[in-house]
Design a protein around this nucleic acid. Structure first.
Lengths: 148, 148
DNA sequence: ATATAAAAAGACCTAAATATCTTTTAATAT
DNA sequence: ATATTAAAAGATATTTAGGTCTTTTTATAT
């Protein structure tokens, strides 16, 4: 559904939101190690988010990534939009061009419920909501690792 | 979500179910042209379905593809299983290995609703159900084309 | 039996996603 | 100002999905 790039981005940004702050920036190496993600690849993805001001960074000693007040409020859909685009949320489940409510493919009525539902989740939830979940222990407590 | 291979397969099999029968088999060329799909690529995919007895075929003059009684009753999930595998329906939305109800990722509770919902749709609907939809005109009437 | 038609099979090609490695730029502390 | 540190940027490699082309096999009609 979401590309690897996209879920890497989401996990990384939540990790940064959870563990970092403006005066405790998180290095790409730490993120990569803790989340068990390919560092250089991840680096490209975060670069893109920084460019779009979804994520903040500074270079040099004690540099790294962090998220500011505004970034925490950004909805997940925005990150998806930047990395994967929004085509999934408009596309027919059977890949037909002209599929729509008035001209539906044989799967349309069932599929659209799912597609719209997902859209709503991603359009509603902000980065901070995920960070909060992590902090509440509803989700992985220590980190967003793949392993433990 | 579903790979191109997989939606090509679904559309092709519905086309065959709709337009063909044991004594009016449908050639790969017709399928490719009508559905605007790459013929040779599609050919591979259908081969696989034939091998799994989801679809029937015969070679030679007046040969082609058709589906028998039993095949029409096969659930969509089976086709998905053969072509894409079922990992999507077990995988965490954020790509974490150990995500589960008791150990959820920060997106789990919301995501699982739709993952399960989709699973149910595909596990419930059979090929014939889609063919029926096409015949009822609820879906594209003439064919499953990408264009008209 | 033979020609023919159509799927099966095999080899190969292309593009996109994913991943790695190297060099450059820019903050910071000394 | 200089050295150091860490992100940005660039170049390149690998893998997977998607697609094409050619040859082989097999069923049918003559």
């Amino acid at each position: 559904m979401l590309s690897k790039s996209c879920v890497y981005a989401l996990r990384a940004i939540v990790y940064v939101g959870h563990n970092g702050s403006e005066n405790h920036k998180i290095g790409i190496k730490e993120i990569g190690e803790e989340l068990d993600l390919p560092v250089h690849f991840l680096s490209k993805i975060l670069q893109l988010l920084v460019k779009h001001n979804i994520l903040q960074s500074t270079k040099g000693p004690h540099g790294g990534f962090y998220i500011n007040e505004a970034s925490g409020k950004i909805k997940l859909i925005r990150i998806i939009e930047i990395i994967d685009g929004l085509s999934f949320f408009h596309k027919c489940g059977l890949g037909m061009h002209e599929c729509s409510d008035s001209h539906p493919c044989p799967l349309h009525d069932d599929f659209i419920v799912f597609r719209e539902g997902l859209n709503k989740i991603f359009s509603t939830k902000a980065i901070n909501d995920l960070v909060k979940k992590v902090e509440d222990g509803n989700a992985f407590v220590r980190n967003l690792n793949t392993k433990n």
